[in-house]
């Protein structure tokens, strides 16, 4: 437990020293705030780019606040995930490559403490980025579009975080198992993309899929309620996260630190 704390503190310190703790939330803020702002200014933007052809009459209703926030989360689902995965891909593999992992593990550190401290570090930066970005987007949505209740925002934040935590847990797994940083990012993105696509194509058969959590967030934002299929998907995602962590630790235990 003590070692876990020491290692977690090191993770936080490292993120502060290399400014990750600043730039990732900043990117999330930009990605999020873009949505309400561009929705609001869409008519002006269209005008600036030459406008619509003479005579074309297109109604452009302002989207609802819930729709804007769904758009924000959908940005996070694409670029946000990409940035999280790219920033986390070397979390174990880079330390393995530099050899510093050998120095750390030559001290009596339990393998689980090492992996769990890495995981806690990833979860911290993920939640921090999502929270700051989402709150900023909420602020602009309230300002420019319409107000959305705090309750819905926080509930959707909670559900969406679980999806992102699932994504970074996968990144941690591949970073432990594989060597090159590039292949870690590739495998994680591939799995996330396949899972999302298959889930949206075969919605009925994939009710358990972690990727449905993004749909549940959307539904919650619009209606303020949860679908009945939420609970199994939620529990299943939590179970998957625990399972992936368990396997990460087991594989890490038997991996060898050859320089």
């Amino acid at each position: 437990m003590t070692q876990w704390r020491v290692l977690y503190r090191k993770e936080l310190l490292e993120m502060i020293r290399n400014y990750k703790v600043m730039w990732i939330p900043l990117v999330f803020m930009l990605l999020g705030v873009m949505q309400p702002i561009s929705s609001y200014y869409m008519p002006e933007i269209l005008d600036n780019f030459g406008g619509l052809p003479e005579g074309a009459i297109i109604e452009m209703p302002l989207p609802t606040g819930a729709e804007v926030l769904m758009g924000v989360l959908s940005n996070y689902g694409m670029l946000g995930v990409l940035i999280l995965v790219l920033s986390a891909m070397g979390i174990v593999s880079a330390e393995k490559q530099s050899g510093v992992l050998g120095t750390v593990m030559s001290k009596p550190v339990p393998h689980s403490s090492y992996i769990l401290s890495k995981w806690a570090g990833l979860v911290t930066i993920t939640l921090l980025s999502l929270f700051i970005g989402y709150i900023a987007s909420w602020y602009y949505t309230n300002l420019l579009i319409e107000s959305v209740t705090a309750e819905r925002v926080f509930q959707s934040f909670a559900i969406y975080s679980i999806w992102l935590i699932f994504v970074v847990t996968l990144t941690l797994f591949f970073s432990t198992v594989m060597k090159g940083n590039g292949s870690v990012a590739f495998m994680t993105i591939l799995i996330v993309a396949v899972l999302s696509t298959v889930t949206s194509i075969m919605e009925n058969k994939m009710k358990w899929s972690p990727a449905t959590l993004t749909n549940h967030t959307g539904y919650l934002l619009q209606s303020g309620e949860l679908q009945s299929s939420f609970l199994p998907a939620f529990l299943n995602t939590i179970a998957l996260i625990i399972l992936v962590l368990f396997f990460t630790i087991q594989i890490f235990k038997h991996k060898e630190f050859r320089e």
């Binding site: 530099s98 050899g99 510093v100 120095t103 320089e259």
Partner: peptide, 8 residues
């Protein structure tokens, strides 16, 4: 002490 000690 590893052959190529490395640190943070």
């Amino acid at each position: 002490l590893p052959q190529y000690p490395s640190f943070f």
